[in-house]
C-alpha cells in the first residue's frame, strides 16, 4: 500500500517532466528535419554544401530557463522522495551496520583479550615448566622407589613362604624317614628275635609257656607281663601273660 502510494506520488510529480520532455523531443525532431533539408540542398551545390555543414555543426542550443526550472524541481522532488522514504531505511541500515561493526569490534577485542590471556598463561606455564618437570621427575622417582620396595617386600614374603614350606616338607620327610627307619629296625629286630626264639624254643619252654598261660587265666590274667627279650633272656623268659581282647 505504501509502495502504491509512493508510485502515485512519483507519477504525479513526473507528469510535468514528461510533458516537458515531449515538448523537447518535438523541438529536437523539428531541428533534425531542418538539418536534413539543408543537407540535401548542399549535395547539389558542391562547396556550398560543405559550408552549410560546418554551419550546422557549429550550432548550440539556447539556454531555456523554463526547462532548467522543471529540471531543478524534478531533481528536488526526487531528492525529497529519497530523503523522505529512503532516509529511514538507509539510516536503519547504517545503524545496523554500525552496530554490527561495533559488535564485531567488541568481539575482536574479547578474542584479542582471550588470546592475550592464553598467551600470558602459556608464558607463565613455560616459565614454570622447569619446576613442573622437576616435580614430575620427583614424583616418578618416588613411585619407582615405592614400587621397588613393594616388589622387594613381595619377593621376601614369597621367599619366606617357600622357605617355610620347604622346611615343613623337609621336616615331614625327615619324620617319615625316621618312622620308616624305626619300622624297618623294629621289623628286623622282631624277625631276628623270632628266628632265635624258633631256634631255641624247646618242649620245656612250650610247657612253661602253657603253664604260665594256665596260671594267668586262672588268676584272671589281669597283669601285663613285660615283653620277652629274646636275644638276652631267651624264649623261656617270655612271660606269656594272657591278654584279653574283646
Amino acid at each position: 500500500m505504501r509502495i502504491l502510494r509512493l508510485i502515485a506520488v512519483v507519477c504525479m510529480l513526473a507528469a510535468p517532466a514528461v510533458a516537458l520532455a515531449d515538448e523537447y523531443e518535438h523541438e529536437v525532431e523539428r531541428e533534425l528535419k531542418a538539418q536534413g533539408k539543408q543537407a540535401e540542398h548542399g549535395e547539389g551545390a558542391g562547396e556550398h554544401g560543405e559550408g552549410a555543414g560546418e554551419h550546422g555543426a557549429g550550432h548550440e542550443a539556447p539556454f531555456n530557463g523554463k526547462t532548467f526550472m522543471w529540471q531543478m524541481l524534478n531533481f528536488g522532488a526526487l531528492l525529497f522522495l529519497l530523503i523522505k522514504f529512503g532516509g529511514p531505511a538507509v539510516k536503519k541500515a547504517l545503524q545496523a551496520r554500525h552496530q554490527q561493526i561495533k559488535t564485531d569490534l567488541a568481539s575482536a577485542a574479547e578474542s584479542r583479550a582471550a588470546a592475550q590471556a592464553r598467551f600470558e598463561h602459556q608464558e607463565k606455564r613455560l616459565a614454570a615448566l622447569e619446576s613442573e618437570i622437576a616435580t614430575i621427575r620427583a614424583g616418578i622417582k618416588q613411585e619407582a622407589e615405592a614400587e621397588k620396595a613393594r616388589l622387594i617386600a613381595m619377593a621376601e614374603d614369597r621367599a619366606r613362604r617357600i622357605r617355610e614350606e620347604s622346611e615343613f616338607i623337609i621336616e615331614q620327610q625327615v619324620k617319615q624317614a625316621e618312622e620308616d627307619l624305626r619300622r624297618e629296625v623294629a621289623a628286623q629286630a622282631v624277625a631276628l628275635a623270632e628266628k632265635i626264639v624258633r631256634q631255641q624254643l624247646g618242649a620245656q619252654d612250650q610247657a612253661r609257656l602253657v603253664d604260665t598261660f594256665v596260671g594267668d587265666v586262672a588268676g584272671n590274667g589281669a597283669h601285663a607281663a613285660a615283653p620277652p627279650a629274646p636275644a638276652s633272656s631267651g624264649p623261656s623268659g617270655a612271660g606269656a601273660a594272657p591278654r584279653s581282647e574283646i
Binding site: 623294629a186 602253657v210 620277652p228 591278654r243
Partner: peptide, 14 residues
C-alpha cells in the same frame, strides 16, 4: 580272647 602266644608278644615288641 585270651592270648598267651609268643607271636602276639613279638607283635607287641614291634
Amino acid at each position: 580272647v585270651l592270648d598267651g602266644s609268643v607271636r602276639t608278644q613279638l607283635e607287641d615288641l614291634r
